[in-house]
Design a protein around this nucleic acid. Structure first.
Lengths: 323, 323
DNA sequence: CACACTCCATACAACGTTGTCCGTGTGGGT
DNA sequence: ACCCACACGGACAACGTTGTATGGAGTGTG
């Protein structure tokens, strides 16, 4: 800035005024300064600026599990969109479902003095964020609730959606329903399984733990699990897949052996309508999930104070696949 | 830090030494300081740290078109992985194919003093980055080359891949091949179309501009274009889709009308093997593309000096879809 | 001609941290 | 008793920017 001032023949302070679009500067000087800025290729140092003038880094942290997953990619997209509306950029970090990594990344983001945090929790204890929150960094959790911390949260109606999905199978006469899920420890999986159990109980269908498989991490293990269950003595006539990767695996195996078993899956996915068999899916608006969370965060950043909110978004039963 | 020093009964300087893991500090003092850090919830201010000690923000900028697109999501994932290996975080920004937005975002990233930039260009002129590069911010371009700037670049063999794809159709006897592409102005599209023309010319098949449709932005317009071409007087017997969104649209329309036309598509995609008809796809290793670019960038950041490199990665013809 | 007002220069401190230099005390080796 | 390395404190400047304060030149007003 000193160079720019010299080059434009004005004072350092005037350059600062121009760069910050402060009023009370003659148009001619503004032009001279801008010309000098252009000529010297000057860019104001955001670090120094943020350091000096209180705390506005115009940067927001987003912590997700894995950016390659379309669900989180959508969240990142919407969050970036909302952030852009507030002239902010997004630092996206992936915890890979590892609570240790999660804590390290969140601390790092705080050290960078981001204006706020959007977090899809991987761990169960976020008490370590308490001091940061007290020091004024707003945090909004989405998709999963925080542990040991009262904070704004935006969730999906996992339980209600799962219940509706299983009810759909029950009204079609299915009584033996294979249920496939990823890690039971993850909040969403736990809730969805709970919803399925609710539906079974409401219809007085006994809950058979032998029909439930957990640790189904990807399409391949899902296909294997389906094969085993279908080859058992009393096979299921329908499957409930608790996420879209599992749904894909189930489709693959059922199609391979031309099975007529029904499928209900949690999560819609991009090419679901091109799948070779009818699917009933529990869909929801991922964009809306992210939008609400991001806007909540920026409301907090703008110092709007209100009690921590928890928003729960509805799900919807839809029919997909080639008929 | 002053508070921490007081609380631990040591000097400010010693706290700095401990926080920076400098040698020559007694273990007992280290423990006292760390205890005080923990108790007061102190986090070193990265901004101030980076400002003072030269330039190491441990942050890298990634500019892509759109994070919701799985191709870019994969790039973001790998870039973040590599960055994590260097204890860095990623600021991801989406240009949405808008050169104006691109320039604004890149300037913003430079103002934040990122250690380096990974850029998938949207515009054609990146001369404005020259001064930044001279000031020491390394830039690596990927998937598309930069305009008006000599810099490290990692590309795919778009032309060779497209040529191989069309050659595949030609050897199967197809002579009328419908070609569908997105904006011709985009580098990748231009190269792929060029490769297709190369193949046609090599086989002495006349190039019929009536068989080429551009401006095919999504699956729906692709399906419409396919319908129109099939309903024309002399319909194509095969289609070459220049990206995966177009491929999906072609599949949809061909399946709807039970057409036997052949498909070759550029880009593989996640559920391609579950598509209801055989597809020949030009696949490539997106992860490798991103990995090479990211590692090139960090090599530059580590001040390894060598002539700007251009790396071109091969493509591969693969068979997909339910047979 | 005194007065207020605008526009700007100059000077200085501060944001939180780190590099440098110097000074001091301690313990170990000759 | 000597020297020396080591561990630490204290003081200060600096990174690039912005907020505050002060004063001066120029313009317009009564």
């Amino acid at each position: 800035m000193v160079d720019v001032a010299r080059h434009a023949g004005v004072s350092l302070k005037t350059v600062s005024r121009v760069v910050n679009k402060a009023p009370n500067v003659q148009q001619e000087l503004v032009n001279r300064v801008l010309a000098a800025v252009d000529e010297l290729g000057f860019r104001r140092n955001q670090l120094a600026s943020a350091l000096r003038s209180g705390q506005q880094t115009a940067t927001v942290g987003l912590l997700i599990e894995e950016i390659a997953n379309p669900f989180y990619a959508t969240i990142a997209h919407v969050a970036a969109e909302v952030a852009a509306g507030f002239d902010s950029l997004l630092i996206t970090a992936s915890s890979e479902e590892d609570p240790v990594r999660e804590e390290r990344l969140l601390r790092d983001l705080c050290a960078r003095r981001v204006d706020g945090l959007l977090v899809v929790p991987a761990g169960y204890d976020h008490a370590f964020l308490k001091s940061e929150v007290e020091q004024g960094i707003p945090v909004v959790f989405l998709d999963r609730p925080a542990g040991g911390l009262v904070a704004d949260t935006v969730l999906l109606d996992n339980r209600g959606g799962a219940r509706a999905g299983v009810e759909h199978l029950l009204t079609q006469g299915h009584r033996r329903i294979g249920i496939l899920l990823d890690t039971i420890g993850v909040y969403t999986m736990h809730e969805r399984l709970g919803g399925a159990q609710d539906a079974l109980a409401a219809a007085s269908v006994p809950y058979d733990a032998g029909l439930v498989r957990d640790g189904v991490r990807d399409p391949v293990t899902a296909a294997t699990a389906v094969a085993e269950m279908l080859d058992s003595a009393d096979p299921p006539t329908a499957f409930f897949a608790l996420n879209n990767r599992i749904t894909v695996g189930v489709v693959q195996e059922l199609w391979r052996r031309k099975s007529q078993a029904a499928i209900v899956g949690f999560d819609d996915f991009e090419l679901s309508h091109l799948m070779p068999m009818p699917l009933t899916l529990i869909a929801y608006d991922t964009r809306e999930l992210a939008r609400q969370a991001a806007e909540l965060l920026f409301a907090r950043i703008a110092k709007e104070s209100f009690w921590p909110r928890t928003v729960v978004l509805p799900t919807q039963l839809v029919q997909r696949g080639l008929q």
